Simulated scan of single mutants.
Amino acid sequence: MKNDRWVNLRTFEEGFRGRGIDAVFGAMVNFDALYDNARSPFADQLKLHALLSGMSKGYLLPLAAYNPKADMDSGGKMLADVLDALANKGFIGVKIYPPVGFYPYGNVEFGKGHGKDFMMTARQFDEHMLSLFRECGKLGAPVMAHANKSMGRSKAWDNGNKPEGWIALAKQMALDQQTPIVNLGHFAGDEKFDDDWQPKYASLLTDPGTSKMYADLGNWKHLRGCTADSGCAALERLKATIASYPGVEKKLMYGSDWFMMIKSSNWQDYAGDLARALSDMNLDALFYDNAVNCYGLVPGGMRRAAVEKHLGYLPAWLA
């Protein structure tokens, strides 16, 4: 966590590239205002990630962090910086982190148990989040979000990622004949919780009105050691979800959550472990096609054009 970012990128590349991982989509998190203050200005962090992307020849394609409270405190400058990164610095998406204290949408409805102070700004949170998704839609940029139970800023925010906030967002945007472009990180997680998050997310992903919503299997560590016919609990749970919601497998993609995964032994084998466990699925779609579609990197895609504009060429793995 305390390494320079170029060191982490080098470590990741050295560990994964020889195993067929030809690119990494690097997600930032912004903890300003709601959790902690950064030690370097946000705009400088964006410049750094753009520089790392260029120096890696497009091995790293970055996602810009967005924190609605920090945006409020900056008078909208944070969103302006994010949109500039998408338009001019080769960023392919945005990362939000609901555990720090907001829902993707529906803060007025779902935030009633979070105290009077929060409710005084709940409507502003909804307005800023809706603005983010609308602006990202114009640029063809997906928003990646933590979408499983987590250790939130306080206990009240452990469930800030629950499906209801995303369902509310999809309904609100449908009123304007829009659909959010989203990567639901972790797809509710690989552990069995006493909840119905994964089925609700699967239902949302397979709804005809959410064609631009996807999910990843980041840090599904309980799939390691499984094989397609091994009967592991996490794998059986995923198979049951796919059987109940046909088509959801077309919305799933590989993810790592490297900062969490690196604490595990043999982290370099993670992608191969998932490939073995999920060998019954379309691995080309899981490891490439779905991500390229979600992130607008297909020929003619807006993010593909932004990457080529920033680098002056297309990365070899994408060309």
Rank of each mutant, 00 (worst) to 15 (best):
L83P: 07
C136R: 01
S230G: 07
V248D: 10
G106C: 03
Y59C: 01
P208C: 12
K212D: 11
G75W: 09
V29H: 08
L175V: 11
R303F: 05
V143L: 12
A64I: 09
L51E: 11
R276T: 08
M55F: 07
L61Y: 07
H146E: 01
G137K: 04
Q124K: 13
M261L: 15
G54S: 12
K116W: 03
S56C: 12
K251D: 07
K116V: 09
K239S: 12
L175K: 15
A202K: 02
W220M: 06
L283W: 09
Y35H: 12
H186A: 01
S131H: 14
I262Q: 13
M119N: 13
A215L: 05
P163N: 03
L274V: 09
D84C: 13
I262V: 15
A147F: 01
S131R: 15
L63N: 09
Y214K: 05
V7P: 00
L169Q: 05
E164H: 10
L132D: 09
G272V: 00
K2D: 12
W166N: 02
D36Y: 02
L63E: 11
W166P: 03
E164A: 15
P246R: 11
N293T: 15
A23E: 01
M213F: 00
A233G: 03
A38N: 11
L51S: 11
L9H: 06
N183I: 07
S264F: 12
D196M: 08
G20E: 07
T121M: 12
M78I: 11
S40G: 03
L217A: 02
G301M: 09
S244A: 15
M55I: 10
T241C: 13
W197F: 04
K89C: 13
P68Y: 07
Y214S: 10
F91Y: 15
A145I: 06
D207S: 15
L34H: 01
K138L: 15
P163G: 03
E308P: 03
A243W: 02
K200L: 11
Y288S: 13
M281Q: 12
N290Q: 06
S264T: 09
K138P: 01
D280F: 12
A70C: 05
L311P: 02
Y97D: 03
F125R: 07
N266S: 14
A277G: 12
A285R: 13
A147Y: 00
Y201T: 05
Y97N: 08
A80E: 15
D195T: 10
D273S: 10
N293Q: 14
D194R: 02
K57I: 00
V248C: 08
L297Q: 07
L297T: 10
D81I: 01
L63T: 05
L223S: 01
E14L: 14
